[in-house]
Design a protein around this nucleic acid. Structure first.
Lengths: 246, 246
DNA sequence: GGTACACAGTGTGCGTCATAAACAGTGTGT
DNA sequence: ACACACTGTTTATGACGCACACTGTGTACC
């Protein structure tokens, strides 16, 4: 493992060292690598979910013993952080000629949800770190690129990236969770909402609209998710227009 | 434990049974209660965080042995679901005369973030269920009440509640996580962003705006969080105005 | 070329965890 | 009076993350 000249926190240093090959050292050649470990872990999680992702199970899948993994990662938490970035190692949506910022941002968000939902276990990882891995920053850069030409301030662009990302994450999580819920939300409401105690909500329930089966699109998302995204994009558009640009 | 005439999933049934006293049964009087268990658990989590929240530690705090808790909850996961709803047992912001929908929604969101941030361990709970507990639905009802008079469709109101809630949750989590991060995000970017690989992001970094210390308000929130919330509210406003109401 | 050293991988064991199952005592129902 | 349902306890299990010591391997140094 290379040195840490930037004095980054250890996990972040390891995230970035992934991209740099090792120089030869004393001792036996490593038969394992961090890449192999993360690949096996992702495969296992994809097949059996986060609950199956123990150090022992990962090591077994690689044909090694549990403790050997600790030569490569400091802890399981560090491995999880590495997995989050590794799972984002996909093609990133880039601006297309003639496409406006809004269509670009929408595409960026939808694609992010798609990636998240292709690894549902990602959504259950109990730790959060800032999105500073190589892949995470590639995604951020692509999102920022979608906003070029909007005339917004740098800090505003960064906030927008955060807003849209967090929406993508929340909605991906919600979509996945609904898939395993024994009862649709609308039915819960119908059974539980007492008009005397919850009058505003009871009115919505009485409309019957909350009972309708979700209208699922080609991304696996429902109308509510699309609606929320458009509201966010409307809000950003409102700000851009107030700047008298575009 | 009372019966389940509505045929709700077990955890949801237990969430709502909290509000109904037990009729006398055979056997010794229970010396424990679900209320006592949840109160002790919240107290322990508030003091020591989610990591300290084992069944053994909760039982010890109550002066009982671990396995006794299982007379009251089916599993630790069920207890966590109950805790999520119990922690939301606070005063709920209600519409105020003369306040418009936008101010109401902002207040609703900010107050939600405040509650979430007062129990940071809530943000780390690895399971998600739909917000169908008694307290969760009280909050939802209050949010819906803020939207009365907007002329929006019931399903649209429900989507907006979801959008604003998920934003509150995301931002509360982000705020808490930043508090324990060894390095500010701006500094990570300055160290890691190579203009050749990440040109759009590098431009933002070069502006210097991402280095500025966060401007924290009385809710403990930064400018970026407030900005994102206003964009969401702008988007909703845009929709309401497009309906020719208000 | 020989020896010291750093390294990779293994084996062992620890403390902690959630929870199954059996047990003992308690209070009601018949 | 006895059967039964209930509360809380005890005992034990399998699983987990990871500390630490050990063995064998390949390089660095003299």
């Amino acid at each position: 493992m290379s040195e840490n000249p930037l004095e980054l926190p250890p996990t972040v240093a390891r995230l970035w060292a992934l991209a740099e090959p090792e120089s030869p050292r004393r001792g036996p050649r490593p038969a394992l690598s961090l890449e192999a470990i993360t690949a096996a872990a992702i495969e296992l999680a994809d097949e059996e979910g986060l609950g199956a992702l123990s150090m022992a199970r990962i090591a077994e899948r690689l044909g090694f013993t549990t403790m050997s993994l600790y030569r490569y990662v400091a802890s399981k938490d560090e491995l999880l952080a590495l997995l989050m970035d590794a799972a984002a190692d996909t093609d990133v949506p880039r601006p297309v000629a003639g496409e406006d910022w809004r269509d670009g941002m929408r595409r960026w968000a939808l694609h992010q949800m798609e990636v998240l939902m292709s690894h549902p276990w990602l959504l259950q990882i109990p730790i959060i770190g800032p999105p500073v891995g190589p892949n995470a920053l590639r995604w951020v850069d692509a999102g920022v690129a979608m906003l070029s030409g909007t005339g917004l301030e740098p800090w505003e662009k960064m906030s927008i990236i955060g807003l849209v990302s967090s929406y993508a994450l929340s909605e991906a999580r919600l979509t996945i969770d609904q898939g395993s819920e024994p009862m649709p939300f609308g039915r819960y409401l119908r059974l539980l909402v007492d008009p005397k105690k919850l009058p505003a909500l009871a009115e919505l329930v009485a409309s019957g609209q909350l009972d309708e089966p979700p209208d699922i699109d080609e991304y696996g998302l429902d109308a509510s998710t699309r609606f929320g995204l458009e509201r966010i994009l409307d809000g950003i558009q409102s700000l851009i227009e107030s700047r008298g640009i575009q």
